[in-house]
Simulated assay, not measured.
Amino acid sequence: MQDENRYARDKEICMHLGDDQERFTGAVVPPIFGNTLFTYPTLEELAKAESQEQNHYVYSRGSNPTVEIAEKKLAALERGEACRCFSSGMAAISATLFNSLKKGDHVLCIDNLYFSTMDLMKYLQKFGVEHSVVYSVSISEIENGIKDNTKVIYIESPTDMTYRLVDLQAVAKLAKNKGIRTIIDNTWATPLFQKPLEMGIDIVIHSASKYLGGHSDLLGGAVIASREIIDSLFHKELLLFGANLSPYEAALLLRGLRTLPFRMKAHQENGIQVAKFLETHPAVKNVHYPGLRSHPDYELGKRQLSGYSGLMGFELEDVHFEQVKKVVNSVELFQVGVSWGSFESLIYSRNNGKNADRLRKENQSPGLIRLAVGLEDCDLLIGDLKKALDRLL
Results as ranks from 00 to 15, higher is better:
A189G: 03
S226W: 04
D217E: 10
N244Q: 10
L212H: 04
K210M: 10
A225L: 06
P191L: 12
M199W: 10
K195P: 03
L197D: 00
E249V: 10
R181Y: 02
I201P: 04
K173T: 03
A208L: 14
F234D: 00
P196W: 01
S226Y: 00
A225K: 01
A251C: 12
F241Q: 10
I229D: 09
G179R: 05
Q194T: 05
R227W: 11
A189K: 04
T182R: 01
S226R: 00
A225H: 02
A243K: 12
A251N: 14
E249R: 10
G200N: 08
L240W: 14
G214L: 03
R227N: 14
T182L: 04
I224T: 09
A175S: 05
W188D: 15
L218H: 09
A222V: 12
L239C: 11
L239T: 09
I230F: 05
I229C: 08
I230W: 05
H235P: 09
K236Y: 02
G213H: 05
S232A: 08
L192H: 08
K195F: 00
W188R: 15
A175R: 03
H206P: 00
F193N: 15
V223C: 05
T182D: 01
N177H: 14
I229F: 13
L238R: 08
N244M: 07
D202P: 04
K195Q: 10
I184F: 09
K195N: 11
N177W: 09
K173R: 12
A189M: 11
G220P: 02
L197A: 05
E198M: 06
A251R: 12
H215L: 11
I205E: 01
L192G: 01
A208C: 15
K178R: 10
A243S: 14
L212V: 11
W188L: 15
L212Y: 11
A189P: 07
P191F: 14
A225G: 07
I180S: 04
V223A: 06
P191E: 12
V204S: 02
L238W: 08
D217N: 14
K210R: 14
D185Q: 08
E198H: 06
Q194D: 07
S226P: 02
K210H: 13
M199G: 08
G220H: 00
R181I: 02
L238T: 08
K236P: 01
K178F: 02
S246M: 13
Y248H: 15
I203W: 04
E249G: 10
H235A: 12
A175H: 02
Y211V: 03
F193M: 15
T182M: 00
I224P: 06
S209I: 08
T190I: 09
I224E: 00
I229K: 07
S232K: 06
A189E: 06
R181T: 07
R181C: 01
P247S: 11
L233P: 03
K236E: 02
Y211W: 06
S216G: 11
L238G: 07
P191D: 13
Q194P: 08
A251S: 15
L174W: 05
R227D: 14
K195H: 07
Y248R: 14
N186A: 06
D185F: 04
L219D: 14
G213C: 06
E228T: 09
S216L: 09
A175Q: 02
G200S: 07
D231I: 09
